[in-house]
Amino acid sequence: MSSKSSSTTTMITTYSPSPTVKNRQPIIKDVDWARPDKRGFHQCRPAYLNTGTVNAASGSAYVEFGSTKVIVSVFGPRESKKASMYSDIGRLNCNVSYTTFATNFRGQGTENKEISSMLHKALEGAIILESFPKTTVDVLLWCWNPVAVSFLLCDLPVVISCASLALADAGIMMYDLVTSVSVSCLGSNLIIDPITEEETYQDGSLMITFMPSRHEVTQLTLTGEWSTPRIHEAMQLCMDACCKLGEIMRSCLKDAAASSES
């Protein structure tokens, strides 16, 4: 105990409160530029997926993509709130919360509302809402990215994929798993699955949410200036990655089902 307290005191003495100003890297437009985490341009971050992390929920998933961590719990289908009107199809309620300490600026802005509505739109098309009339499914989400300055869109694909994994774990009927991948356009390069640093310098981005087996796009957003052939190229790249991510998610669900049976 005493050694521990002495170590903390030494830490205090050596601590210098200098603000961490990162060196701003120039936007390099040549081809042989390396990504900060040494990935190839068309290589996604290493992913870790797990289901059934929250006991209280009907279904849950924990996903780690690089430094982004997301936990999703799915509750329901349960009775809709009294105030809501009768509906012969089910309702989906998405709520994204971003931990207040997750970003450099403490507190939550309006971003989580935007993210919630985007998540809702991405999932809504995949869920068979007719299968639970009069009830609500709640998708509650908690996200943490230690290096983010504010909520950046680079986390959104992770959030969406994780939410669909949790829905599948909860046994909510869906037409297909929803997978999502984004690409950033940096100069003349297209880089897949950008991290925060890269996203700060990007010229444009494209995010797709995709149902691999049905080959359908549920959401698509694009920023920056693009020509049509380039959009085509980026979409192909994203869809290819989505299909691969879909397979990984499927095998994760199969493993979980197999281990619960045995």
Binding site: K121, G125, H215, V217, L220, L222, T223, T228
Partner: peptide, 26 residues
């Protein structure tokens, strides 16, 4: 040049339809 794109409505569409819609919009 395309400067931004948003999809509204939850229903899924085929990727080729998206590209077709972009060219019509152009």
């Amino acid at each position: 040049q395309i400067c931004g794109l948003t999809k509204r409505g939850g229903a899924g569409v085929d990727p080729s339809v998206v590209l077709d819609m972009i060219s019509v919009a152009k």
